[in-house]
Write a protein that binds this DNA or RNA. Structure first.
Length: 456
RNA sequence: GUGGUUGUAGCUCAGCUGGUUAGAGCGCCGGAUUGUGGUUCCGGAGGUCGCCGGUUCGAACCCGGUCUUCCACCCCA
């Protein structure tokens, strides 16, 4: 065999069964998005580099796939950067476009660009692939789909409440139980930093705090100290490492710490608002939990922060996330436009559903009936019936070649087609069809109407 | 981006301290069975051992590079 072709690292092919299952997830999510009043938009797979660069932090810039300029790009390259082999600097001069890294920033760009045509508050959903030049791992790909729903143009906390409900609605529809919707608030995190007098180290502080469940209290303290946060400061917020119990109990715990921080208190108020609303309208299958260590994500979150944990028995990173960003469109010149949104990680949800065996059987079902081909005369008779069946909304097909019976039956068997229809000279004369149930092996000679009845 | 790991038939994997023609199970193709599949029996095809180079009389096996897989870190869906 010749050299086998291959696909790039971190990308995948999807076979028919996989596509069917993925579509099932897409359709389920989409149906809930629509029920909540979101409308779809789509944006290009690549954007101008300056739309994306600098929006995800230094780390993010590194993970953005850059597209090489067409033509004689070296002619226009930054020769100084080239001389000293400064990859970072030369990139800007040889690449002007980049593959989209997420759906939020392109959405912000979209809102600013089309601000005059949009009726605010604007609720949009978007399901498209994104690309990251990351090193792949389980559930981590270089091309994957995000399913986002966002609202811009409203500061109302009712949006947050609705997003919690939307998460719950989607996971309930997917029959995925035991999902935890973790919530936090940027203002609470700012409050912590303020209280300990390390306001300017907010990012370092939250990034370290975010790792609590992974590296433990000791690890977090160590990392904070490495980042230059004073030991005495860390001691002050020690209680947050040990927060336990119900949502309300945890709130009480942080209230004590944040009593001197106006920002912090505001964050608490927001969290309480959302929690109380959810208590009035209980969730179906998911659980809402406060996690003050949750920092997750992008620096532009200003209020609520969401992250979705898969059920405990599945080893998988977060399967969704989101939050409130007061000033995302500000980067593109549109001020005072608050947005809040959530995202579903389709590829990871797939892995979780697969692991827990939660895909409905019907998802992969395809053709209902296969007509055996006995020759041209019989094939014509069969195809006429196929055409009529399709008009009845029944998926049917004719085996294209008059191959051996064994081969045709085998084909039906392999494809798990539930019915095979045999129609030869005898059936043609009587205007009937021999309908064989592939599972039971039973067969009977029926007329078209009876066949439709069995197949529908 | 850093450190580690993996790659042998379509698939899952054997293959001893380097030693002739690299194996198994499953699958595939053909036949027993030319209007009856999933069971059984018989036969068959299919491998530059990820790729490139090196060491050696000799490499699937040792060494280097590269690609890929998975894992940890970074970060994240």
């Amino acid at each position: 065999m010749a050299q086998k072709p291959s696909i790039p690292k971190g990308t995948r092919d999807f076979n028919p069964a996989e596509v069917a299952k993925r579509n099932y997830i897409f359709e389920t999510i989409k149906a809930e998005f629509k029920k909540f009043g979101f409308q779809p938009i789509e944006t290009p797979s690549f954007e101008n580099s300056d739309t994306l660069m600098g929006k995800y932090g230094e780390e993010g810039d590194r993970l953005i796939f850059k597209i090489l300029n067409s033509g004689d790009f070296l002619k226009k390259a930054d020769s100084k950067a080239y001389e000293v082999k400064d990859s970072l600097k030369i990139t800007a001069s040889i690449s002007e476009k980049a593959l989209r890294y997420d759906l939020t920033v392109p959405f912000a760009r979209y809102v600013v660009q089309h601000q005059n045509e949009i009726d605010f508050p604007f609720k949009r959903y978007q399901i498209q692939p994104v690309w990251r030049a990351d090193r792949p791992q389980k559930g981590r790909f270089r091309e994957f789909f995000q399913c986002d729903a966002d609202v811009v143009g409203s500061k109302s906390l009712w949006q947050e409440v609705e997003f919690v409900q939307l998460y719950d609605a989607v996971f309930s529809a997917l029959k995925l139980e035991g999902v935890t919707i973790k919530i936090n608030n940027r203002k609470v995190l700012s409050g912590f930093a303020e209280v300990i007098g390390e306001k300017d180290k907010l990012i370092d502080f939250t990034v370290a705090l975010d790792k609590l469940d992974k590296i433990g209290e000791e690890g977090v303290v160590k990392e904070m100290m490495q980042k230059g946060i004073a030991e005495s400061a860390i001691e002050k917020i020690q209680p947050i490492f040990k927060l336990q119990g119900s949502f309300a109990e945890k709130i009480n715990g942080i209230k004590a710490i944040l009593k001197t921080s106006e920002t912090g208190k505001e964050g608490i108020k927001e969290l309480e608002f959302i929690e109380q609303a959810i208590q009035e309208m209980p969730l179906n299958s998911a659980k809402l939990d406060l996690d003050v260590t949750l920092a997750r994500g992008l620096n532009y979150y200003t209020g609520a922060i969401f992250e979705i944990s898969a059920p405990e028995n599945v080893k998988m990173g977060s399967i969704g996330g989101g939050g409130r960003y007061d000033d995302l469109t500000g980067i593109f010149g549109l001020k005072n436009m608050s947005g809040v949104g959530i995202s579903f990680g389709l590829d990871r949800i797939y892995l979780v559903l697969e692991e827990l065996n939660l895909f409905p059987k019907a998802v992969t079902q395809n053709t209902k009936a296969l007509f055996i081909n006995f020759g041209d005369k019989e094939a014509l008779y069969a195809l006429k019936a196929v055409q009529k069946l399709r008009k009845e909304n029944i998926t049917a097909e004719l085996f294209p070649d008059s191959s051996k019976m064994k081969k045709q039956m085998n084909y039906a068997n392999k494809r798990e087609i539930p019915y095979v229809i045999l129609a030869g000279g005898e059936e043609m004369e009587q205007e009937k069809f021999t309908l064989k149930n592939m599972k039971s092996g039973e067969q009977q000679k029926v007329d078209f109407a009876a066949m439709v009845k069995t197949l529908s």
